[in-house]
Design a protein around this nucleic acid. Structure first.
Lengths: 120, 120
DNA sequence: CGTAATGTTCTAGTGCATATAGAACAAGAC
DNA sequence: GTCTTGTTCTATATGCACTAGAACATTACG
């Protein structure tokens, strides 16, 4: 199974779905152009409401990670480079630095979320 | 003013406070050992409830970034190295990679929050 | 000892995010 | 035309985040 959902976890279900797919794309387990299961099917497989899966899909679409088109399904976006190696390395570096300083994942995430730059 | 709060922003007030202080520490504007204003005072200055500031302080304490002791006030933690240069560089690298791929800050933050590693 | 400063705890109200559900609809594929 | 798939609309219920006021505990200091 590509995704596993924990209904008892503290993070919301739709976020768990989005996180799982996002991680799979960045890790290369899901390749650009590859198609994701239909929302209804994934919802049934995860024993979750269809709207929950669609919420996750919507989130990932707003991040530009996937493309959803009605009637045709949902596919992983084909980016210009589609090379996530640099991102993976940057992620690992940041986590290592954060661990070295004893910062929590949440704190690191917050630093990123409110970091200055081009995109909001 | 060290901090600015926007009551109309989408992010909660306590997170804005925590984020501002965290960013100041990482940027070096607040040095280890330096004392933060009393919760009541900062709350009055920001026109926010004291609990909001204390919530932010508690969050930062759980991250290990500050030390709060009743009666004595709140100070920035003195870390072994207290060197945030590597962290700043790693943050900048990740943001750059994220922007290159068109990923949103929220997506990047989520990748960090659920990244594997030693600490949760 | 007394007083001031400071964080902690208790209690509580309000609103919003989350999740689920059903149904009708729109775009595309075949 | 029919099936698939995502979109939109309405509705409901639940829980927690957020904010807030007041009393309390600990520390510092004269």
């Amino acid at each position: 199974m590509l995704l596993t959902i924990d209904p008892t976890a503290d993070s919301p279900l739709f976020e768990q779905v989005a996180t799982g797919i996002r991680a799979a794309v960045v890790a290369g387990d899901l390749r650009p152009g590859e198609r994701l299961p239909a929302a209804r099917d994934l919802a049934a497989a995860l024993e979750v409401n269809m709207h929950t899966v669609l919420h996750a899909y919507r989130t990932l679409r707003e991040e530009g990670l996937i493309q959803v088109r009605r009637g045709r399904g949902t596919v992983v976006s084909t980016r210009s480079s589609a090379d996530y190696r640099g991102l993976r390395r940057a992620l690992a570096d940041l986590v290592r630095e954060g661990d070295r300083l004893g910062l929590s994942r949440t704190g690191l995430a917050d630093l990123i979320r409110h970091a200055p730059g081009t995109a909001p």
